[in-house]
Design a protein around this nucleic acid. Structure first.
Lengths: 159, 159
DNA sequence: TTTTAAATTATAATTATTCTAATTTGACAC
DNA sequence: GTGTCAAATTAGAATAATTATAATTTAAAA
């Protein structure tokens, strides 16, 4: 964790930005909640525990800065809120998401599934791809197996 | 166009909704601007020409209703605005987008590029896919060729 | 035509995000 | 260590997008 923060600090410095306490607290919150998909408000509330004097505007500015540096990616899942997701260190592309329309869970796919598709797009549409957003909407593995259980029960009853 | 509206009317009726003049005007605007990616506000302004008494809230409600019916898809390209995009009749999935980071243009890809990827996701993640959102961010063919022109000019000068 | 649930309007309220102006601070030069 | 100053922060106001409310109107079935 410390080394990760140090590397982000260096990234900031190389672009003449400072790692202020507020920024550091924000980064720590993101690292500690790596698997979540926090909104600016969520981050703000969590950062307040570490640095109670921080303002919401600072959180927004910090998240925007981290987006610029490609430390986080900003994404919108269709509710009206932007969410911020840590990018894996060294990853050149944003990872993919599975959004469950039943329970609302958001799972991640770190594998790059789009290599072939991107080749086709670059060749056929003459479009130079810099990044992508890929989200699947459907039913997550937990809800799918919940359905299976229910069906099993119904089957038992009808015997 | 009329037949398309009639089919949408039937879709509404089959779910016990009415095709009010406001809704019809909204659908017409969407059909007339099929290649654009209009925000609710954009739609509102265009509908006002046809039906000046319409309110913005009605446009929002209508667009939400059309989303439910899968006549349009709601999408967000990262500016804070939701945009509404007509789905091709009979298409089971939303089409893909190319967003140019230089000129802001949004182009569409109607081809289904994700067939194979979706099979992999369903098999490996046990996720039942219902829909998807795929957007590429990069440089559109127009801007790419603009770059090429500039390079050509620079080359000519340096001769 | 009448009836009635559904839809609309105008406006207020809410929510997310950005801006502003005054103040504070991190980091470098001395 | 101290002074300096651009960069960053804060609090709060402003803006923009979207949704809710309550009174009124209307599409369409009987």
């Amino acid at each position: 964790m410390e080394s990760r923060i140090n590397r982000i600090k260096k990234q900031l410095h190389s672009r003449k930005y400072k790692l202020t306490p507020q920024r550091e607290a924000t980064v720590r919150v993101l690292l500690e909640n790596e698997e979540d998909h926090l909104s600016a408000e969520d981050v703000y509330l969590l950062v307040k525990d570490k640095a109670p004097e921080i303002g919401l505007a600072t959180v927004y500015r910090t998240l925007e800065l981290l987006s610029e540096l490609k430390v986080v990616d900003k994404i919108n899942f269709g509710d009206g809120v932007s969410r911020y997701d840590l990018r894996q260190e060294g990853a050149t592309h944003f990872h993919h998401h599975l959004v469950c329309i039943e329970c609302g869970a958001v799972d991640e796919i770190q594998e790059d599934l789009l290599g072939d598709v991107e080749k086709v797009v670059e060749r056929n549409w003459h479009f130079k791809i810099k990044d992508h957003r890929l989200t699947f909407h459907g039913i997550c593995h937990r809800c799918v197996s919940k359905h299976a259980e229910v069906e099993q029960k119904e089957h038992n009853i009808s015997r």
